[in-house]
Simulated assay, not measured.
Amino acid sequence: MSATSVHISALDGIVNVNSLFTLAVFIGLTWNPTDPSNSLIDPSGCSAGPRIAEDLVAFHVYSFSCFLFSSLVALGIKQAARLARGAHQQDHRHFWAFDLAHVNKTALRLGYVVSAVGSVTGSVFLMLALVNVVQIKLGVLGCGTGAGHAYAAVVPLVTFVPAGLLIYVCFVFYAFTR
């Protein structure tokens, strides 16, 4: 597999993951956070206020915007790589020249970084939206003894998502320096 094919496969992966996260954002936006029958907390407990519901919607919109931006950048780079590869193939008229496109590595690397930043930012906003979902469903964090279930849900979220993002950023940085 040539370098151009690897780049195109990596860009496909970014777009596919962003598509899944975008689906999660839309599902989250269709849920009505103010529906009283959709809550798991005791009515006398620490219910989330309208500010948390507003933040939930805002974080979903920010997340969607970041994932869409990242996907569009990745698709643009992928299209440019395919066009460059096609132009190179027409010049040499050899079957094996298909994967030997001349792609501006600086532009490719910059595009990867911009797309990765969009994906990471979208993931952070999606995580923040999920924290607000937890607060609406299980009670506000920092509300005392009634927030135990909320913390039990939020702690793995804010532990594993940043850890995964750190691993992702490390691999993007590794690919960027090669």
Rank of each mutant, 00 (worst) to 15 (best):
D42P: 07
P43E: 01
P43T: 07
S44C: 13
G45I: 13
S47E: 13
R51Y: 14
I52M: 00
A53D: 04
E54A: 15
L56D: 03
V57C: 12
A58G: 01
A58M: 11
A58S: 10
H60G: 05
V61S: 08
V61C: 03
V61N: 06
Y62M: 13
Y62S: 12
Y62T: 12
S63F: 00
F64V: 01
F64P: 02
C66W: 07
C66H: 01
F67A: 05
F67V: 02
F67Y: 00
S70D: 02
S70R: 02
S71V: 00
L72Q: 01
A74W: 01
L75T: 11
G76Q: 05
I77A: 01
I77V: 09
I77E: 00
Q79E: 00
Q79A: 03
A80N: 02
A80L: 02
A81H: 11
A81I: 13
A81T: 13
L83N: 02
L83V: 05
R85L: 07
R85W: 07
R85F: 09
R85P: 09
G86V: 14
G86L: 14
A87T: 03
Q89S: 06
Q89C: 01
Q90C: 10
H92R: 05
H94E: 09
H94M: 09
H94K: 08
F95V: 15
W96T: 10
W96Y: 10
A97V: 08
F98E: 01
D99M: 11
L100M: 15
A101M: 09
H102C: 11
V103S: 04
N104L: 01
N104Q: 00
K105C: 14
T106I: 12
R109L: 12
L110H: 09
G111F: 04
G111C: 00
G111W: 04
G111K: 03
G111I: 05
G111Q: 02
V113I: 15
S115Y: 04
S115D: 04
A116R: 06
G118A: 04
G118P: 04
G118D: 07
S119A: 11
S119C: 10
V120P: 08
T121A: 15
L126T: 09
L128D: 09
V134K: 05
